[in-house]
Design a protein around this nucleic acid. Sequence first.
DNA 1: TTCGAACTGGACCAATTGGTCTATTGATGT
DNA 2: ACATCAATAGACCAATTGGTCCAGTTCGAA
Lengths: 187, 187
Amino acid sequence: MTTSSRPLPTKDRLIRSAANLFRTRGYHGVGLNDLLADANAPKGSLYHHFPRGKSDLALAAATWASDEMLRLIAVSFDNATTFQDGATTLCFKLAKLFDLTGKWDACPIGSTLFEGPDNEGFRTHAMHLYDGWIAEVHDHALRFGVSEKEGQCAAEHLFVLVQGGWLLARARRSSDVIRELPGMIAD
Amino acid sequence: MTTSSRPLPTKDRLIRSAANLFRTRGYHGVGLNDLLADANAPKGSLYHHFPRGKSDLALAAATWASDEMLRLIAVSFDNATTFQDGATTLCFKLAKLFDLTGKWDACPIGSTLFEGPDNEGFRTHAMHLYDGWIAEVHDHALRFGVSEKEGQCAAEHLFVLVQGGWLLARARRSSDVIRELPGMIAD
DNA sequence: TTCGAACTGGACCAATTGGTCTATTGATGT
DNA sequence: ACATCAATAGACCAATTGGTCCAGTTCGAA
């Protein structure tokens, strides 16, 4: 039961709980019991909405979490005047979420989809979601008049920085690294 | 049974197997049965050498894997003439390991120690190991005449890039990103 | 050769795992 | 009022989990 989860339909509660739990404890680190208790749903509902069970739910949870991230990228770059500006805003927003919520301390996709059981399907899904993030940044970059190739480079660079920073921040329990990320782009 | 594991003492076989398995499948993704089969050791030996069981073994495995990485950093920077040079060599070595072995497709520390059970102890251990990597790069950076602070920055920057690149490379099943990492330092 | 500790082998355990199945409930259209 | 079907509730299951325990074995020092 994360936030005002009462009015949400069961399926959405399952997805949200799964996303939040997998994010910090990993796919295998979360048992169905924890999951169902957190979502306040019986086992029957899980297998009604996700016939293939835990793995299906993990896929859906990762997609949902990815969409959250896409929105974060969008709002960060929408009001930006330069790429640097957008990247800086994104990092600061991530750092704030890292500090305030207990769940933004790791990339939701990686924690959920790597180390999964049917590794190949999970990996492919993760790849697509990541490419979605990069494409989103890429599109925004183009608005600032950079070339196609430069935009792709910049987007991948930002992705790599964010992921690396996320990990180090988690290990140190400090969002400082994330805030210093933008400085690494210009250097 | 990874490589010529016959002459190795049981304890070392356990550590190596644990390091290799946890690296790709995560702490919770590896059961003791898999682990013991891979190390070709009985359960009694595990709890003799690691009285606290799986978690103790994971700590030892992470430390061992970290030492491997430290050596890789050392040989990369030892014969380098500039920081860029050392960083480039390191990335190319990592990319090669990524391609050749099946196990260098993720940071061994993160996969093993995050999402662990007694999260706090695991997290602290991971932090120390990571700081070891950064310190190693930092020391090499100083040899090239940069200031203390610049060296720390450069080391953390490289760390972040490597971690982020590692993740993207894993998702894409391609070491290309890792090889392009050095280009992101200069940009 | 004997003694004692380090180590091995594996039977055994309670708890938990992901998953199945069926009975029941709720709502919606007719 | 009825039929229909999506959704819920949870008992139940085999398999596996990490962990305990102890009888043997091995091996080096006395």
